Amino acid sequence: MKRLMAMLLGGVIALMVFAAGGNPVQAADVSSSSSQPVTTKSDCGCNVTILTGAERNKIVSNLLKSESFKQVKKEYKKQGYTWNGAHDIQVVRNNDNHAILVGVPFTDPKGNKVIFVFYENQLAYISPEDN
């Protein structure tokens, strides 16, 4: 009797798994989670590519390991700035001259978001974030 019940319940479970309609797993939106670089014309008219995925991560890793970034972070932390973390860092390549710019967001003492832009692991300029 136990074998009959086990086979009957096993058959019902198999039927439910293989014959049930629909798929509960939904794919993410491709446009928002793509790891492919996106080429755009920015507001400044620049021909840039937003780097993502492994290429972005490698550039960010190299920047975070550099002495210049550590010095900038330390200096501005003393002034009351806070670093927002690596997840918010933006990496952009200018397609005209192949320059790679890394935008690192910090928060100033007043709570405003400020972008520290690095070029070749050196601080190039500081810009308030565009809203």
Rank of each mutant, 00 (worst) to 15 (best):
K78W: 04
K41E: 03
L15F: 12
P109A: 06
R56C: 09
M7D: 02
Y81M: 12
D96S: 12
L101F: 12
D29N: 11
C46A: 13
Q36K: 09
I59N: 01
I100Y: 02
V30D: 13
V38N: 01
S32Y: 10
N57S: 14
N47E: 11
R93I: 00
K74N: 13
T40R: 07
T49W: 00
M7P: 01
I13Y: 01
N57H: 07
K110V: 14
N97T: 11
C46P: 02
V12Q: 07
V92S: 03
A28M: 13
A54C: 00
A27V: 08
D96K: 14
V102D: 07
K78S: 11
L101T: 11
V72G: 11
I13C: 04
I50A: 03
K58P: 02
Y81T: 12
K73R: 14
D88M: 10
N95L: 05
Y81I: 09
T39Y: 04
N47C: 04
M7Y: 06
T39D: 11
I13E: 01
G85Y: 05
M7W: 07
D88R: 12
G11E: 07
K65W: 07
Q71M: 14
E67M: 09
Q71D: 15
S61Q: 14
N23H: 09
A27M: 11
S33G: 04
K77N: 02
K78V: 12
Q26Y: 11
R56D: 10
M16S: 14
P109E: 06
D29S: 06
Q71L: 15
S68H: 12
L15W: 09
V17I: 15
K58I: 10
V104T: 10
Q71W: 09
V48R: 13
T49E: 06
D43Y: 05
P109Y: 06
V104S: 04
